[in-house]
Design a protein around this nucleic acid. Structure first.
Length: 347
DNA sequence: TACCCGTGGGC
DNA sequence: TGCCCAAGGGT
């Protein structure tokens, strides 16, 4: 691992920020000001999610809920509808809880330090540092995937970024480098660097503004950094999705449990099966609907089944108007599309 | 700690 | 196609 002296640190800061001032993505909608509410919403949305995906969601979210008070007072269904399709839905619920915490418990006064910001639900060390540096000029590194990648290469840090304990190693390595005059811009500059010249795949190191500071590139071992070992294959599971209509033509939905995957969302009644032979009803499709989560691969067979004589507490018939108004997970939209596909063919 | 938690795009 | 990846946090 490389250790920079103060002279190298000073010149790195100057080089990085000069590039950022020229080529930074200052047009991103969450960078138009340093309102902590806007920055919080953007940071939560950007967790494990691409910038290009977030922009549209962010603009719609801010147009609907412009202030932290608006979010605190909104119906949860409103928030989830705004989040529909973005994934990791606990982020949306925690974001609203964070807004309620600021409004109700702190009388609208934002925590202005990284430590205090971590008290907000859904705000961990990275997000807290990002907000603290961008909105309140706290001199702290916002250690995220970009900083792992950028400084893993620049400094040839051998710690495995898949392991949580490596975070402290990176934090300690980066902390002395953060520009004390412009900590927020420093962190955002690293983000921009990490998504342009220093991407994970096909980086353009040769043209990077900080090429001269890149020890991994200098030594011809850039492809070894950052060190990352863990990879988990999604587990394959077979499911059947039950299709049930009532006399009015409404479809039977079932609310998922309050914990676990897609918690609290409405889907067709889903039942796990061991093999296709276990399908319990009239098979409606030749191929299953396939949906891949981070850790699971679902193959879902649509089956028509008899209506239950009595609905369970978590079951309801919903008209198309009703379910379209709900926030539904992508997998349920896939099932609905598939059902309409086979229904149209038969008509 | 290791695992859980969504989705879409790139190659 | 089957992987890997993308501004993490909760448990």
């Amino acid at each position: 691992m490389e250790i920079w002296n103060q002279e190298q640190i000073n010149s790195f800061r100057a080089t990085l920020l000069a590039w950022y001032d020229q080529e930074g993505r200052d047009q991103l909608p969450w960078r138009v000001n340093h309102d902590p509410y806007r920055v919080l919403v953007s940071e939560i949305m950007l967790q494990q999610t691409r910038v290009e995906t977030v922009i549209e969601y962010f603009n719609r979210f801010m147009a609907t809920l412009p202030t932290v008070e608006d979010l605190a007072q909104a119906e949860e269904a409103t928030v989830l509808k705004l989040w529909e399709g973005l994934g990791y839905y606990s982020r949306a619920r925690n974001l609203q809880r964070a807004a309620q915490y600021v409004v109700n418990d702190l009388q609208g006064k934002w925590p202005n330090s990284s430590d205090d910001l971590q008290e907000l639900p859904g705000v961990g060390p990275y997000t807290a540092a990002a907000i603290a540096s961008i909105c309140f000029n706290e001199v702290v590194p916002a250690v995220d995937g970009n900083q792992y990648r950028v400084f893993g290469r620049l400094l040839k840090i051998d710690a495995d970024i898949s392991q949580p304990k490596s975070r402290k190693i990176f934090y300690n390595a980066i902390a002395p480098i953060v520009d004390p005059k412009r900590p927020g811009d420093f962190n955002q500059a690293i983000m921009d660097l990490g998504s342009t010249y220093m991407k994970a795949s096909n980086p353009d190191t040769l043209n990077s503004p900080v090429k001269d500071y890149n020890a991994a590139y200098r030594d011809g071992v850039e492809d070894k950094y950052p060190v990352k070992t863990k990879r988990v294959k999604p587990r394959k599971e077979l499911w059947q999705a039950q299709v049930v209509y009532n006399e009015a033509g409404d479809l039977l939905f079932e609310k998922r449990p309050e914990t676990g995957l897609l918690s609290g969302f409405w889907t067709f009644p889903l039942r796990k099966i061991d093999q296709i032979d276990d399908l319990d009803g009239q098979q409606l499709t030749i191929k299953p609907v396939v949906h891949i989560f981070t850790h699971r691969r679902w193959e879902i067979w649509l089956v028509a089944v008899k209506a239950p004589t009595k609905l369970a507490a978590n079951q309801r018939y919903l008209s198309s108007k009703e379910w379209q108004a709900l926030s539904l997970p992508k997998v349920q939209h896939k099932l609905l599309a598939k059902l309409h596909e086979v229904t149209d063919v038969s008509e």
